[in-house]
């Protein structure tokens, strides 16, 4: 029977950003031996809202969207995770069901480590726990910022903020502009800032007319970061 090639954590493109970055070679080898590596095609779910978590997912490559479906059946994107990020850690420690659905946005490589094993790794290596705490803290900070934006900012400011955050996570600098290396539909972008499709399209046109962004096909380019910062009403 066909065997899957065993990619090791040591070769992982996201090793330097991952939770195991401080472990030594033999510890990494042990995890590589135990973990399960899978490829998910665009649109395939890693897990579904309401199901039970029984391990930790480490994103090796690709982008994954975390969505929540409301009582009206509407889907909102809460977060996009990429290489080096982990998934399932919050539900794992609280022993609650997944509150979100994780779906691959493109072909993605994801490693899975079961709960019992990851807890034993944490017990032996406090650096792994610290790295998870660091990721949780960052996630919490982002969630707080998003919540205050939804309450305090208008749609123009929220859209500018979203473009800046996509630049930080998926931006590639080329030819004096920033290319957002992530294909999002208008609908997906609208749910990320809590607005209607039509409103988002109107503001995107305004940003383009002001020369702040450009679009080639589905790819967005940011041309004027300073102006975008002003429009977002944030200064960092």
């Amino acid at each position: 029977m066909k065997k899957v090639s065993l990619s090791t954590c040591d070769d992982c493109p996201s090793k330097k950003d991952g939770i195991f970055c401080h472990l030594n070679f033999s510890e990494i080898e042990d995890i590589s031996h135990h973990k399960i590596t899978n490829h998910y095609k665009k649109g395939q779910d890693l897990f579904v809202q309401g199901t039970h978590p029984f391990g930790l997912y480490c994103i090796s490559s690709g982008n994954i969207k975390l969505t929540q479906t409301g009582v009206d059946g509407k889907e909102s994107i809460l977060r996009i995770v990429h290489a080096g990020d982990i998934l399932g850690h919050r539900s794992l420690f609280t022993d609650e069901d997944f509150a979100k659905t994780a779906t691959a946005m493109e072909d993605t490589e994801v490693c899975f480590i079961d709960k019992k094993y990851i807890l034993s790794v944490i017990e032996k290596n406090p650096s792994v726990a610290l790295n998870i705490i660091s990721k949780l803290s960052r996630d919490m900070g982002n969630a707080e910022n998003k919540m205050s934006s939804l309450h305090q900012k208008n749609v123009r400011e929220r859209l500018a903020e979203l473009l800046l955050s996509l630049k930080a996570t998926h931006g590639v600098h080329e030819d004096n502009r920033w290319r957002i290396n992530l294909k999002l539909t208008r609908e997906e972008m609208a749910t990320m800032i809590g607005t209607a499709n039509e409103t988002l399209i109107r503001f995107m046109t305004e940003f383009k007319d002001a020369g702040i962004i450009e679009q080639e096909g589905k790819i967005i380019y940011i041309k004027k970061v300073d102006e975008l910062l002003e429009w977002a009403n944030i200064h960092y």
Partner: peptide, 21 residues
């Protein structure tokens, strides 16, 4: 081993993948 009741449709694993359980 632990058991759980699924509340909604969910894919346990896709063809070509190694099941995680």
């Amino acid at each position: 081993f632990p058991s759980k009741i699924y509340k909604s449709n969910s894919t346990l694993f896709y063809e070509g993948q190694i099941p995680i359980s």
